[in-house]
């Protein structure tokens, strides 16, 4: 019985005591570029209360700073992009042409290892199509990625 709640959220975000709203408020970081889960700057608050940013003094479960997004396993692209701050990392990696966040995105989209370099290169070349503005949403980015992949001979079969 006591497992019901957890299982509902699959590998639910927190074993911790309190539930936090999906996408939760209080993820101060990472939303310089994109509107999203920014909400109140909880980190600043936490700094005032504890003298440390993010309640790390005693290693609080991350449930307390509201940074958990529901996203269960976040093991396909869209979920991953919806995590606070991740889209920003992906955007930066795409602009540069490489990086861990972009790699992780390709893994989460099921791009096989041997296609990854080509995927990254294609994303890099189409950066402006994928991120047309700073007001783009995770869904739009995902749709743009699909569009770009569909137009690429090698990637079309993967999207």
């Amino acid at each position: 019985m006591r497992k019901t709640l957890l299982a509902a959220a699959l590998v639910a975000t927190s074993f911790g005591a309190q539930a936090s709203a999906p996408g939760g408020s209080g993820c101060g970081w990472g939303n310089m570029l994109f509107e999203g889960n920014d909400g109140m700057p909880m980190h600043v608050l936490a700094t005032l209360v504890n003298g440390t940013s993010g309640n790390r003094t005693f290693g609080i479960t991350s449930g307390t700073n509201g940074c958990d997004t529901s996203g269960a396993l976040s093991y396909h692209g869209e979920n991953m992009l919806a995590q606070a701050g991740v889209m920003e990392e992906v955007a930066q990696d795409m602009a540069v042409g490489d990086g861990e966040a972009l790699t992780a995105l390709s893994v989460s989209m099921g791009i096989p290892a041997e296609e990854r370099d080509h995927f990254k290169k294609t994303m890099h070349e189409n950066f402006s199509t994928i991120f047309p503005s700073e007001d783009v949403t995770a869904e739009e980015v995902m749709a743009n990625i699909q569009k770009v992949m569909n137009q690429d001979k090698q990637l079309a079969s993967l999207s």
């Binding site: 590998v11 639910a12 975000t13 927190s14 074993f15 911790g16 970081w29 991350s62 995590q83």
Partner: peptide, 13 residues
Amino acid sequence: YFSNVPYMNKIRD
């Protein structure tokens, strides 16, 4: 308590 969260959240934090 133990918690179980995406590692990317920890990288971010």
